[in-house]
Design a protein around this nucleic acid. Structure first.
Lengths: 342, 342
DNA sequence: GATCCTGACTGATACGGTTCAATGAATCGG
DNA sequence: CCGATTCATTGAACCGTATCAGTCAGGATC
């Protein structure tokens, strides 16, 4: 069942069948209808592999995310998919699960498939992972991290500013013993957000402490176990406000604190990052730093498509580094401790 | 940059290069190493399209889910991906977003790509959508729904039993004005869960009412707005216990009830479905009916691989319909109303 | 009426692999 | 020592499509 069968049935050559699909304006109306009728009758569907092999290009886009269980990434993916679907591309989502080995495997597979482009949310900044794709001329957009802009387009939010927002918010509430929970520090997101709260603390002057609790991953479970550690500290040393590197960790911390008998925000204030949909619905509505998740996905896809089309038409392309500005969302989990009495 | 270049550099024929990749046991050790060295030196990566075109089979699996924003499906996807990754298949996840049009488009694309198999979580049971794939001999496993077993393997959980569990649980707590919230009823999951609670109610005898509130989708937003409707009822008519068709709706309801000034579980008891990770971390820890999410994904993938391999080897294949049994998870959102005083 | 266009269609070729019959060399049993 | 067998390798055919140089009929131009 191939184009040849369609051609035979419609009494035309295979070239004409191909033209009906790809350059209909070259085909007379009558022939077009005859071919279309044959296609419908046989239920023929073009073979994408053959098409791609011959044409050299592909309408399929690969996407690599760190953690598909994190709603942040599904929202980014939805934003990207929405735009790409409109532009007739199909998206393949791959989950590296924060594992460098899987990340490499996924990129290798996309390279083998000769995808048209890749949206890549990397777990670190080892650029050599992208060498293969680059050599093959496959455009890549770095997602959720803002790069140098020299070799790739990138779209992210300003994590340093976000961390600072969170830190400043906690300081504004009068806290002086702060903590940052998150990891691994190989993640730029973690490093930047941490650096952000550190800057806020430094700027605040003397008398402010910042405890850093490192976690192996950014997950609910990591939050739960860190909460145990923090709750075990003597009350005089225990931080009174915690900034979690993302909302998953924050929600885990919340669960852990409740289990350990600590009240949020009375005993410990808590702020997360990303403002995923579940943050507002958490046990105590969670303050967070909002990133425009779907916009990040959409913008990444837009830059990718632009680069692909520029390459196809031979037009020049200038790499862009788009940085969105995060936004503080204050909810009950950081509500001033005295307000209930005031 | 093709196999021919590698062959030239390694001083062998293209057939030998192919054998190094696909049947290394046929190639002598020395030659193997020489070829491998050439591959590495040139940085050659096989073209999957060409390979697939000739070989006729593909190591890529398509997966269509209804709602990628629902952690239930990302967990199912993770389970499937885990097994398929081990078996050297790559997975393409597509999100139909509960839209029949997108569902068809996604299936069409998978057909064009001649994927090796499809994992399909359908939004309704119009089997004709799968005709194209069937005709092409592409195996399909129906996920999250148990079919007749005649034409496809299927893996799901027993939603009728699950709905019954939830209903019985609410009745056991002494509630007599129940409600079911969910939709659209074109979803078999919704229909079955609803039918389950109806059976429990019928069995309980007289004096039990069951209000059905229909929602356009299964989402947080749908829950929030349904909560408004329910809260607006006069206290004497308002249900005292609500069963939501899934946890997203339940969490939305929870938010909506809190906003409307209703306490959970004191004014309204609430139980969800799926037991996603966020259920336990919700404002009030949410009772739910647990489905073995990752197991469903893993099992689906296993059946799919089995069918693919049977087809490859010409072995016969018997379609299987696997049905997991759901499990009640009681948490605070359905805690008996009097306990605080007792 | 010869020439030139134009538009519609054809048919061969190429894309980059896999596969398999054929080949030649090496090993083996008798 | 010879035919049989095994092992490693070769080379050509083929998968299903896009593309492009041609072909051909018919109308316009001079």
């Amino acid at each position: 069942m191939s184009m040849r069968d369609v051609a035979t049935l419609a009494q035309v050559s295979v070239g004409t069948v191909s033209n009906v699909l790809n350059s209909p304006e070259r085909v007379s109306e009558g022939t077009r209808q005859r071919v279309q009728a044959a296609i419908d009758k046989l239920g023929w569907v073009p073979n994408e592999s053959a098409r791609q092999l011959r044409a050299g290009r592909s309408r399929s886009i690969g996407m690599v995310v760190m953690d598909i269980a994190n709603p942040f990434f599904t929202d980014v993916a939805r934003g990207a998919e929405e735009l790409l679907y409109r532009k007739q591309y199909s998206v393949q989502i791959g989950n590296s699960d924060q594992d460098p080995g899987r990340e490499i495997t996924l990129l290798d597979r996309f390279e083998q498939q000769r995808v048209g482009g890749v949206l890549f949310a990397p777990i670190d900044n080892s650029a050599e992972r992208l060498l293969g794709l680059r050599r093959r001329g496959i455009p890549v957009v770095i997602v959720d991290r803002v790069g140098s802009g020299a070799d790739y387009c990138s779209v992210g939010a300003d994590d340093l500013a976000g961390g600072r927002l969170a830190g400043q918010h906690l300081l504004d509430q009068g806290h002086s013993r702060l903590a940052f929970v998150g990891g691994p520090s190989s993640l730029a997101q973690v490093r930047d957000r941490r650096r952000g709260i550190e800057l806020a603390v430094e700027q605040a002057g003397e008398g402010i402490s910042l405890l850093a609790v490192s976690t192996p991953t950014l997950s609910l479970e990591a939050g739960v176990s860190s909460a145990g550690e923090i709750a075990a500290l003597p009350a005089g040393e225990r931080p009174t406000a915690v900034f979690a590197a993302n909302d998953l960790v924050a929600i885990g911390l919340l669960q852990g604190f409740v289990t350990a008998g600590l009240r949020v925000p009375d005993d410990v204030a808590l702020i997360g990052y990303d403002d995923i949909a579940f943050a507002a619905a958490a046990a105590v509505p969670l303050s967070s730093v909002r990133q425009p998740r779907e916009d990040i996905g959409r913008k990444s896809a837009e830059l990718l498509v632009r680069e692909i089309e520029a390459a196809d038409s031979g037009a020049p392309h200038r790499h862009e580094a788009v940085r969105f500005t995060p936004q503080l969302v204050a909810r009950r989990s950081t509500q001033p401790r005295k307000r209930a009495k005031g």
